[in-house]
C-alpha cells in the first residue's frame, strides 16, 4: 500500500494512502478531540471539534474526514483551534439542558469530558433552556432530548451496524430532533430490535438504560469494536 508522509505538529509521520488525518494522528499518539466520530461508523464531519490547521494558509479542515496527502503540514493545537473548540462546547452546553448534576451520565459523558479537556469552566453565551421531551416508552431504554448533541451516532450505528435504521433526524437548525421511525414513540417502533447499540454509542446521557439514576449510566464504547472485529475478522476478542 502506498504510504504518505506528512508533518503533524512539526513531527514527520507516515500513514497509508487514504487514511484520514485523525487516523494518522492517533496512530502517532497525537490526540485530537472528537465527538461525532466513532470508530467503525461512517464519518459525517459534523461536530467540527476535530478541525485542524492545514497548509501554510492554516485552512481549517475536519481531521476525521480529510485524507492525508504527501507533504501535508498539519497543526492540531494552536491558540485559535483551542479557542474555537472551546466555543463549540460552550454552544452545545447552551443549546439544550445539560444539567450534569442530575444527569444519568454524570462522570461518564463525552461532552463533560470534552469540557474538562478543553478548559470550559463557564459559558459565555446565553442558555436557551428549551422545553424538550423525554421518551421512556421503550421497555428497556429511554431517550432524553435535553442531553442530545445531534451527533447522529445513534442514527449511524442503528443503520450501519444493526442494519435497522430506527433513528433519523427531523426538523432543521436548532429545532432538529432525533426521531424513531416516522416520529413515533420509541416503544412503538416496529423496527427497533432492542439491541442496545445506540445506548452504547450515544456520547451523553441522551440515550440510557431505564432504571439508571444520576451518574449510573456507564457506556461501553468497546462493544462496537468487539462487534466489528467479530464480524469482519471472525474473532471474538473481548
Amino acid at each position: 500500500m502506498a504510504v504518505r508522509t506528512l508533518t503533524i505538529n512539526e513531527k514527520l509521520v507516515s500513514a497509508p494512502e487514504g487514511a484520514t488525518i485523525l487516523q494518522a494522528a492517533r496512530e502517532n499518539g497525537i490526540d485530537i478531540p472528537t465527538l461525532c466520530q466513532l470508530d467503525g461508523l461512517s464519518t459525517v464531519g459534523a461536530c467540527r471539534l476535530c478541525l485542524v490547521e492545514v497548509g501554510p494558509s492554516g485552512r481549517l479542515q475536519a481531521a476525521c474526514v480529510t485524507q492525508v496527502a504527501e507533504e501535508m503540514v498539519v497543526r492540531t493545537e494552536t491558540p485559535k483551534l483551542r479557542e474555537y473548540r472551546k466555543m463549540i462546547i460552550e454552544l452545545l452546553l447552551t443549546e439544550r439542558n445539560h444539567v450534569c448534576a442530575v444527569c444519568v451520565a454524570n462522570h461518564h459523558c463525552e461532552l463533560q469530558d470534552l469540557a474538562v479537556k478543553l478548559g470550559v469552566d463557564h459559558v459565555r453565551f446565553e442558555y436557551l433552556h428549551p422545553h424538550l421531551a423525554v421518551d421512556v416508552s421503550h421497555e428497556l431504554f429511554g431517550i432524553d432530548h435535553n442531553r442530545c448533541v445531534l451527533c447522529t451516532r445513534c442514527v449511524r450505528i442503528c443503520d450501519e451496524i444493526e442494519g435497522v435504521h430506527t433513528w433519523d433526524v427531523s426538523g432543521r437548525g436548532t429545532n432538529a430532533r432525533i426521531i424513531s421511525d416516522l416520529n413515533q414513540p420509541w416503544g412503538e417502533s416496529p423496527t427497533c430490535t432492542s439491541c442496545g447499540k445506540c445506548v452504547q454509542a450515544c456520547p451523553t446521557g441522551a440515550i440510557f438504560r431505564q432504571g439508571s439514576t444520576v451518574a449510573e449510566m456507564e457506556k461501553d464504547r468497546q462493544r462496537l469494536r468487539f462487534l466489528l472485529t467479530a464480524r469482519e475478522k471472525r474473532e471474538w476478542l473481548v
Binding site: H98, C100, A101, H107, Q112, A115, V116, G119, D121
Partner: peptide, 10 residues
C-alpha cells in the same frame, strides 16, 4: 488556577 478534573461540571 483550576484545570483538568477540577473544572468538571456536575
Amino acid at each position: 488556577h483550576l484545570e483538568g478534573d477540577d473544572i468538571r461540571f456536575g
